[in-house]
Design a binder for these strands. Structure first.
Length: 473
RNA sequence: GGCGGGGUAGCCAAGUGGUAAGGCCGGGCUCUGCAAAAGCCCCAUGCGCCGGUUCGAUUCCGGCCCCCGCCUCCA
């Protein structure tokens, strides 16, 4: 009936925000695990906190796929909201051109971080008809109404289950004083906008709809896109912890009110990244981007390691000290992969069993990295003392490759740095000098290489070259 | 105020009712022309504070002190 993990790998389990349980994951259609993740708002570069969420979602997907469960992954790009409109106007660009620019930047960063591209990734503006259709259904069934300002609102009162995800019934449903001023447009302060009537400050950024010119509300884009590409019910919906309320709560309300069917079966929320113990914010000046990490001389892959070094349900404290640790650890993995050699057709997962178990256990990446370190030592000892057969070695290499694939580490670099011919020539010359035991010449050539920005490492039978300000290849 | 998450070695960070994973740093060793890298070993009688339950608590319960997040559009 349902896909079973191959090779005796444990079936992944994941904590569900809605039920507070940690069920084993199975595709509800018995074949493909369909999930939706809220994407970035493209009004500037994504920061490393955004990427924590996307990296966790990426590992989640990779674990499923290596476990033999095919996935279908959909992500939206928020390209119409107050921030994109305001910023594009400030820069004197059309909304479309402005968002295109930042979308491409996001996708370049994502690729550098080895994030698998979603099967569908699209902007909200490209799905306007779907959103309008969804709002139309809600209007027809009386779940929505047009307010005094011309905007269309979802009527919270028409969806009794409202608040289940964020446990609103255990909270105080507040009516903030600031919203008393807006009572003319909404029946209830908790009602949220599905369609926002055009305002002068939106400029040319409006579209026609049965309710007049305007633009879609934020929540409706996710519901419309998720249901269009995954069906009215699907397996999982994810995002940052801060989206639980109100964003995901509102998505559930409007989706289930429209369809009468359960929306997402499971909810996956990633805790925030902190910087030096505080929330990242522009005002604190601690909001870092991938660009900043690269400027400090570290790689995207090293950042990826840092983001995986904490459990996704706990806030993770980012410090710059973590990057060198990442470099060291990844270097050890790289060496072990070289020692193991080419993967064979049939993996032997036994030596890495602890890693698979930890990842399947609510995506416990820090525990999995700990297990990986232990396994690394054991495999090193095994290679040294047991003189394993080529087949045995290739089988472990295949399992090791699976583990690397799940973490997204040491994947083929899409844009390897070219070594200049002059540098290669110097290195060759030095290698010859060294073979001739001409130490003076060898030292002089090493100095020249370092001046050129390259480090030469001597091995037994060969050497390696790496840029001084980059991690070792 | 309401809801929730935390306080574990210099830093980061798992975990458990039975005596503390892992990484980095640090120390030692092997290897090594030099330089590195790599490999091996060591490194918290202690898990915010005070009580309680228990044969036994860092892990359960109560109280207290800090820190952090959410509470209408922030991943």
């Amino acid at each position: 009936m349902s896909a079973q993990p191959p090779g005796g790998l444990p079936r992944p389990r994941l904590y569900d925000t809605l039920t507070r349980e940690t069920p084993a994951l199975e595709p509800m259609d018995g074949r493909t695990f369909r999930f939706y993740c809220c994407g970035p708002t493209v009004y500037g570069p994504a920061h490393i906190g955004n990427f924590r969420t996307f990296v966790m979602q990426d590992v989640f997907r990779r674990v499923l796929e290596v476990s033999g469960i095919p996935t279908r992954h959909v992500r939206n790009i928020t390209d119409v909201d107050d921030k994109t409109i305001r910023q594009s106007q400030t820069e004197g660009k059309t909304l479309d051109a402005f968002c295109q620019e930042w979308t491409e930047k996001f996708q370049r960063d994502a690729a550098a971080l080895h994030l698998l591209p979603p099967h569908v990734e699209a902007g909200a503006v490209s799905h306007l008809p779907d959103q309008i259709a969804l709002i139309g259904r809600l209007m027809a069934d009386g779940h929505a109404y047009q307010g005094g300002d011309g905007s269309v609102y979802f009527r919270i009162g028409s969806f009794p289950a409202y608040g289940a995800l964020s446990r609103l019934q255990e909270r105080t449903l507040t009516t903030h004083s600031t919203q008393a001023d807006d009572e003319y447009d909404r029946d209830s302060a908790a009602d949220f906008a599905l369609w926002k009537a055009h305002r002068p400050e939106d400029g040319a950024n409006f579209w026609p709809s049965p309710w007049g010119n305007g633009r879609p509300g934020w929540h409706v884009e996710c519901s419309a896109m998720a249901m269009k590409h995954l069906g009215e019910s699907f397996d999982l919906h994810g995002g940052g912890m801060d989206l639980i309320f109100p964003h995901h709560e509102n998505e559930i309300a409007q989706s289930e009110a429209a369809t009468g069917k359960p929306f997402a079966r499971h909810w996956f929320h990633v805790a925030h990244l902190m910087v030096e113990g505080r929330k990242m914010s522009k005002s604190l000046g601690n909001l870092h981007t991938l660009e900043d990490v690269l400027d400090h001389g570290f790689s995207a892959e090293e950042l990826r390691y840092v983001l995986l070094a904490g459990h996704y349900r706990q806030p993770l404290n980012f410090t710059w000290d973590a990057l060198p640790a990442a470099r060291k650890f990844l270097g050890r993995l790289r060496i072990l992969r070289e020692r193991l050699g080419a993967p064979g057709p049939t993996p032997d997962h036994q030596p890495l069993h602890g890693v698979f178990t930890a990842l399947a256990d609510d995506l416990n990446t820090p525990a999995a990295l700990g297990q990986l370190s232990i396994a690394t030592k054991e495999i090193n000892a095994w290679l040294e003392s047991d003189a394993p057969s080529p087949d045995a070695r290739a089988a472990v290499a295949a399992s090791f490759a699976d583990v690397l694939r799940m973490f997204g580490f040491l994947l083929p670099d899409p844009s390897p740095l070219e070594t200049p011919a002059a540098v290669t020539a110097l290195a060759e010359e030095r290698w010859q000098a060294r073979q001739n035991r001409d130490w003076a010449a060898a030292d002089r050539l090493r100095a020249q290489l370092e001046e050129a920005g390259w480090r030469m490492r001597d091995g037994r039978d060969s050497y390696t070259l790496a840029p001084l300000d980059n991690p070792a290849p």
